[in-house]
Design a binder for these strands. Structure first.
Lengths: 217, 217
DNA sequence: GTCTATAGTTTGATAGAC
DNA sequence: GTCTATCAAACTATAGAC
């Protein structure tokens, strides 16, 4: 926070990035003032405009940069071939590791889409669809080979992504479980969900549909 | 939007509630101005203060009221006894139905916790923990009876809630699937996840750990 | 209960000296 | 690249007439 006046450049840029991630993740983009951001970095508010043209551009740069990183990292981690189970395992391990390592950025990418202006939003949504498709392809393939049994692969895609991405909302570096433990636990749950073997053997209990309907107003 | 001037009362109150839910869900609490809210309702900005003391109280009332509804509805829908599978099925069906029926309110309850002042936040977090515990108890019970096989019931609780609550981020009333179809699909996935039967029989593929680590920066 | 008017802040963004 | 100073706009909240 305290800071000797003078030129910095790259150092300031990185400091702004980090402070911005932290403030936006904590309070949200709209609630973060540029004065607050500048104070966190230790510069004056007007100086921020050496690093972006306006507040919206700052947010977009953060989100876009992160999405590019995410895609590149996923492509490096994924198996091009192999059984659907192996690929799903790899996908899950990657996703958990990434969400644990960069929880703040991931969280912002989910929670601040609403703060993007239309053109910027469209660009980010397109990148996100690509990511969803990579998981969807694995699930489709697994259903085709019989490794997986899913009633609806689109719902399964959204369900698995929500389940894994939820990690960034509660994960803390000093938490109970190591990254490796979380990878193992979540891989187990995702595989069980995808195999879904015993699902149809269940005796569904009688439903008091009336009571349920009454409850949901 | 257009509106005849004059006294209303309860009608205005409900209009403010609905407009607030919509605006906050779309743009976020911090980004919603009271002028915007008043315009949506068709009254002047100062008149809002007949319905709340300040903006924060308005948000808290929305969230708190919804949490109370959620708890009451869950208690009405849940089975007090029965197999863990039956109770988990009931829980899932309820949760899906509620999130489909009141997606906006649910979404706000997740996304605007950050906008609550400390005391208000504490109250909401306490209510949320109760909700999590109800699911956690079902999972614990199922593991004890052997119906479920979960490596970590706390992680499973968070994973299932994230998976189900994710619905409110993408659900649209005019979507492809009916509420009933979604209930069935998600119940199948949740039960498969909880049973996790074949999970340990998997041959885990060899992992290029180096590549994975490199990917997560 | 609603209106108009306004007080008192805070905000994002710009201009110009160093 | 950073600072100081400032503008114009927007905000929450209040006061008082009807």
């Amino acid at each position: 926070m305290a800071r000797i006046a003078g030129s910095s450049g790259p150092r300031t840029e990185e400091a702004i990035r980090r402070a911005g991630l932290s403030l936006i993740a904590t309070h949200g983009y709209a609630a973060m003032s540029l004065r607050q951001l500048a104070a966190e970095v230790g510069i004056q508010q007007g100086s921020l405009y050496n690093y972006f043209r306006n507040k919206q551009e700052f947010l977009f740069d953060l989100i876009r940069g992160h999405m590019l990183d995410l895609h590149a990292a996923l492509d490096a981690a994924l198996l091009p071939e192999g059984s659907a189970e192996a690929r799903l395992t790899r996908f899950t391990e990657f996703h958990v590791a990434y969400h644990v390592a960069r929880a703040q950025e991931v969280f912002i990418c989910y929670s601040e889409l609403r703060s993007l202006e239309p053109d910027n939003l469209a660009a980010v949504v397109a990148m996100r669809r690509d990511y969803e498709r990579k998981l969807g392809d694995i699930l489709d393939h697994g259903c085709a080979t019989g490794e997986f049994r899913l009633a609806d692969t689109r719902m399964a895609t959204l369900a698995i992504l929500a389940m894994l991405s939820g990690i960034c909302t509660w994960y803390r570096p000093d938490g109970r479980l190591s990254r490796e433990a979380m990878q193992e636990i979540f891989t187990g749950m995702v595989l069980a969900l995808a195999r879904g073997e015993a699902a149809e053997a269940v005796a569904v209990p009688p439903r008091r549909r009336g009571a349920l309907r009454a409850g949901i107003g």
